[in-house]
Design a binder for these strands. Structure first.
Lengths: 256, 256
DNA sequence: ACCTGAACACCGTTCAAGT
DNA sequence: ACCTGAACACCGTTCAAGT
């Protein structure tokens, strides 16, 4: 089981290293899912004991963070490599990475929450924000715009990955568009009094192309960024807000 | 909800019920956090054995789903109660609920992923979408707009709750604005070559009022919704796409 | 019908002991 | 320095047995 190539009296290359451990962890996560990664399964794959891993890695959460950072870094450098750049590239880079590694979405929200100044969060923020700063928008809106885009990208990409997994559960034949039909079908069963909006949306059909749907959201937010700075950033503790904010919006569909 | 008007006065009301269990679970989550809820701690609180709970609830995931549904339903009915309605009310209703119950944010993304047609997801989608449909925007954009708003609300509110928890760790004195200063400080330590954008944002100072910041994001997305349908959805890599009947919308907003 | 609580099959993590 | 693997303190869940 153990390699015997020991020509040099010098120290042999260690069979265990942080990098190899992270590699194996990613492989396990990809093939067996989040619950498939345990220190026992990992040590078995690496042909060691569970305790050995702790010499290279502090614990499970650090291991997960390292795996997340690795995958995100690759996705971001690939995505931003091309000359055109643009928000679509960054967004699709993350979108594809999350689709390829479904465990990534929950891990990313964990990183955002538990370690907002950590490398993962900062990398994504920087990559997204750089594209925002290239838009025609005042610098005062950068933070808000980047934040909105980041949350949308992570949320929508995670949703897409989850949908794909559920589509697979539907049967080996089913793809995403079949699954979207299932969702629309479920929505049409809802009560008209309680869920008029959801039913209306189901009636008009859901976009079957996941990338088109995803990028439509990106473009919508970009439109908001370039449209106009959200007129008022006036400070007001608590509630008293000036009434200027919401245009009356010619009440064509009033929520009842 | 539950009948407690049992006729026999000497007969005590049933010591265990699904409702009581969910109540206790929420209490435990609020006070002890996500890791504080175990079947053992829960059964101790309810003065029973761990196995007793399984007669009323299928398992832990169902219990979590029920707790999430309960809190979300309350937040949404309170939020939409007022006559003005509007997106701000729905958004702030969820924002406050997540701030009050920090375990809610991860649970909501779990619900979205694992049960997209379940009651929690559908309730939030409907409440948000109803406000979207009241805006001055074409129905064809409703799904995209609702999806973008939902992901932003959940992501940003979760981030805020996480920030509050981290601020508390900073010391009992620290509030959110002190924590934002800490974040900005950390950002300024970043290398100028690798993180120019993040540093620039840190320099211009972060909004200290969490609600103002949150609503700025909402307004930005709303601006995108009402501005105009996103002009160009140009796809890379030839992809056959049915031409939507979308008017070109006098291109004033072009992402460069 | 509802509840008990011991038992089972796991976990992450530790640590004396080995090389 | 690096690794072993038994042991510890938990988990969620089950189930024969009680009322």
């Amino acid at each position: 089981m153990t390699p015997q190539t020991r020509k040099k009296p010098e120290r042999r290359t260690s069979p265990l290293s942080r990098e190899r451990i992270v590699d194996a962890a990613i492989g396990l996560l990809d093939t067996a899912g989040e619950s498939g990664l345990t220190f026992r399964s990992l040590s078995e794959r690496l042909a060691t004991g569970p305790g050995a891993i702790y010499w290279h890695v502090a614990g499970k959460s650090e291991l997960l963070a390292a795996a997340t950072d690795r995958v995100v870094t690759i996705a971001l450098t690939e995505g931003t490599a091309g000359p055109p750049g643009g928000i679509h590239d960054v967004a699709l880079g993350l979108f594809d990475a999350i689709e390829e590694h479904p465990w990534l979405a929950p891990q990313l929200t964990t990183q955002l929450s538990h370690n907002p100044t950590g490398p993962v969060t900062t990398r994504i923020f920087e990559a997204t924000g750089r594209q925002v700063s290239a838009l025609d928008a005042p610098a005062s809106s950068w933070f808000t715009a980047t934040s909105a885009l980041m949350h949308y990208i992570l949320g929508a990409a995670g949703q897409n990955a989850a949908n794909l997994a559920l589509a697979r559960d539907l049967g080996p034949e089913a793809d995403r568009s079949a699954y979207m039909d299932t969702v629309a079908g479920a929505w049409k069963q809802l009560s008209p009094e309680d869920y008029p909006f959801t039913r209306a949306v189901a009636d008009q059909g859901l976009e079957h192309d996941d990338r088109v749907q995803f990028l439509a959201g990106i473009d919508l937010i970009v439109a908001g960024v370039t449209a106009r700075p959200p007129a008022a950033q006036q400070l007001r503790e608590g509630r008293a807000r000036a009434a200027e904010a919401e245009p009356p919006a010619s009440g064509r569909t009033s929520p009842r």
